[in-house]
Amino acid sequence: MTKVTLTVNGKAVSREVEQRTLLVQLLRDDPASGGLGLTGTHVGCDTSQCGACTVHVDGMAVKSCTMLAVEAEGAAVTTIEGMANADGSLSPLQQAFQDHHGLQCGFCTPGMVMTAAALLAENPTPSESAVRYYLEGNICRCTGYHGIVKAIMAASGQDMPAMAAE
């Protein structure tokens, strides 16, 4: 076991973890078994393909199923639980997902929101193609992506031209 100390959603935390514990396990596992109980981050494929487990590590989008918890020593991690406004209401990006039909079953949504937030931090007014390109590592099996792209465009203050879903 190794002690790992990091910041999660602005709070300093310290836990004893196995060396092989993945960051997503540390985040999600029951507090009774040494985790943080933050189950908003989802595990979809567990093979770094689907992006459902995307979180921010020091501001950068990372697949938390493909990073060891011990590698997050000293890092600042943000999960979907850290995305809402201080009063608990949805952030503009989250609200845009709701308004523009950016989710159906919702399983991919935490990863989609985290990736979208990383994109908007890098590029506050991305083109539609830039949005689609940035979502390459996030898979959604419900929406056909159109609503997600629309939501991100709307959150960036841009209108997406009316067009048929591809």
Partner: peptide, 9 residues
Amino acid sequence: IGDPAVRNR
């Protein structure tokens, strides 16, 4: 290479 999250690691 890969996708944005992969490129960050």
